[in-house]
Design a protein around this nucleic acid. Structure first.
Lengths: 202, 202
DNA sequence: GTCTATAGAGTGATAGAC
DNA sequence: GTCTATCACTCTATAGAC
């Protein structure tokens, strides 16, 4: 990808994070970067091409990062969450306006759906690993952990919205991290409990 | 409020639920209801007046309903959730595009923030009541139930987004209800457990 | 209370010169 | 690869007749 094309995407993301997805026009992007609207059109024939280009970059960046599947301990989950938070802050607009984006660009919706399913499966696999390793208790009833994975996914996906709506209280990454761990707390074994306390002190 | 004004609000809500908040124009509303744009402007001088009018109606409707505070058993929470779901389906657009609405109309944001704080406090009070009544165990660590209230609020506020993003799986009210109850399950006393089983069979 | 007509700004997209 | 110019459209809001 050439320099201008890259710059366009970078600027678009930056403006969307600032003003919200629906409130950024092609002209605005062109002005910010000091190129002509016609030039922008040369690089991305349609607006949807630009949006899909941004999403493509997101996907690559997300996949490109080592999500260490050599699961060693509870710290893996913690690291995974912290990376996700960082990623979400970087593409804030996407998670804040997710519904509108998916509605307006169905292709992105489909791709995101696939990714989501994949992540939920990974989450479930991680829980199984933690059960096997003696950090989490056996599933107390059929489907319990599946529901917990969904809870965590929902919190992890929409917490930026919570932050945007309730501005006064500071719903920081730290709080969300706590919310997510709290979901798992009742299911810790003694070993899990002990390791979690160590993790918390770090 | 006169008939036309009422009709405008009703139609606006209906169109926004269908097409998304940002994708509904004043002209569209006027066309749908077969009045002139000028007439619409007569009833709501500015677009923001219309949006605030809709929100006003939402608030009134929400407050107008008896949220029975004579808390008797776990069924109260269930009823309260089911009413909320119904309300959310009715004003789908608001919860799906909450972030964008709050961003574009700060007045609504402020009002909504106050309501949210109030609801969270109600949630915490309900949990205290359930502890006192022997349905829930004592707080296992300081602040645990506060976090749980926030988890429930987040799930309850953004589950429609989950539904919109993951279309294939059916994230129905039933599933969300289960997600929310699952959050409380580990904290049931034996009495709580027993009463919940009865509730589930209804 | 309802209408028509229109202003004025913004949108995405196209054509063609350089 | 970048520019200018412009089209066709949509949006909110206003003015004034009925």
């Amino acid at each position: 990808m050439n320099k201008t094309k890259r710059k366009i995407i970078e600027t678009a993301v930056q403006l969307m994070n600032k003003n919200g997805f629906s409130n950024v026009s092609l002209k605005q992007i062109a002005d910010e970067i000091s190129i002509s609207p016609g030039n922008l059109t040369y690089h991305f024939k349609l607006k949807s091409d630009l949006i899909e280009g941004i999403h493509q970059q997101m996907v690559e960046e997300m996949e490109g990062v080592i999500r260490p599947m050599g699961m060693v301990d509870l710290g893996h989950f913690q690291k995974s969450l912290l990376y996700t938070f960082q990623f979400q802050e970087r593409y804030r607009f996407f998670f804040l306006d997710l519904v509108e984006i998916v509605r307006s660009y169905p292709k992105i919706g489909e791709r995101h759906d696939i990714i989501t399913t994949k992540r939920m499966n990974e989450g479930r696999a991680l829980i199984n690993y933690y059960i096997g390793g003696g950090w989490l208790i056996l599933e107390p009833e059929a489907g319990r952990y599946d529901i917990i994975v969904q809870q965590i996914w929902l919190m992890n996906t929409f917490w930026l919205g919570l932050q945007a709506v309730k501005k006064d209280q500071n719903y920081t990454q730290k709080i969300v991290l706590e919310m997510i761990w709290t979901t798992l707390k009742p299911y810790f074994t003694e070993k899990g409990q002990a390791d979690f306390l160590v993790l918390k002190q770090q």
